[in-house]
Nucleic acid binder design. Structure first.
Lengths: 157, 157
DNA sequence: CTACGGATTCGAGTGCACTCGAAGGCAAGC
DNA sequence: GCTTGCCTTCGAGTGCACTCGAATCCGTAG
């Protein structure tokens, strides 16, 4: 998977120009991975593409986070744009953003460009949370490495 | 806070010797931070030191994760060893280890040194989970950076 | 002696994010 | 035309990890 390679490059990067380049590359990769063509996807197909269950996708819709179209039989049809939205939602959820905050954010998106300032605030707060989590996770990683090294030594669990 | 500096050094480190050195340094720092002296701590003091609520500490005890002593009045007394255990528990919880797995692990610890092999397996699995999470968080960070850069541009939320 | 903060136990309640089940509709294959 | 399988809606149920409340006990300060 080329994503890993790009992430490695990102983590090694210090100049902000290269950083931006990698971000764009990852975005392009996302688009081709999650929306391989323009044909609308059923709820099952969309779920498989983004790694959620059909149930969860319906739940997200009910909460106002996505609005897929409907075909003549009333079935959901997820466009490439819908899929991009779903990928964004899963990323944010995985990074600990709550459903409530996500609903607030998406409501702003639907209200249009004049809400960008407020959205920016939300994303800045989210970035801080992610950074703090990265720190905590690193600490946890250190702790498990320490445990792994200590077997046969320290007796304190 | 010196922890951050040590983490920076850790993340910049490639030789495994230096890696181990930093791990030990962090462990020593932990010990002095969370058990400043040898006097046993009350449930409120212990909670403040590790950043949990007294309620949660009692809950952990009820689940068999710590066994603080008791004073003559029946109050809990957390020793330095108990505190180390609590720090470990919070680190593992923060990194997404479930209460069930933690209970399993601690039960093995209490059974003594002959369970080290099994404990090692659990910690290896935990390390993998943490690494995966680091990857997911990085992806989420990239996504929020992308959003932050895109305001004024892309119209797709 | 009494008030007070903080300790104890126990079981019940909360919030989050799904997750499921029931009852039924639609379209392709035999 | 009937089965099969995925689709629909709706409300209810689940699992996790706390979190709280009520009733009671302990020890120091005034």
């Amino acid at each position: 998977m080329a994503t890993n390679e790009l992430i490695e490059r990102l983590l090694d990067t210090t100049e902000s120009d290269a950083f931006e380049g990698v971000i764009d590359a990852l975005q392009a990769l996302d688009d081709s991975t999650f929306a391989p063509d323009d044909s609308p996807k059923s709820v099952a197909e969309a779920a498989a593409l983004v790694g959620l269950s059909p149930h969860t996708l319906r739940y997200y819709e009910q909460e106002g986070l996505v609005r897929p179209g409907r075909n003549s039989a009333g079935y959901r049809e997820y466009s490439a744009l819908n899929l991009r939205r779903l990928v964004f939602l899963t990323r944010m959820r995985m990074s600990g953003m709550t459903m409530q905050d996500l609903k607030r954010y998406i409501a702003l998106v639907e209200r249009g460009a004049e809400t960008e300032g407020e959205r920016r605030e939300i994303m800045l707060a989210q970035r801080d949370r992610i950074r703090r989590q990265l720190r905590e996770l690193t600490l946890a990683l250190v702790t498990t490495e320490y445990k792994l090294r200590s077997y046969g030594g320290h007796p304190d669990g």
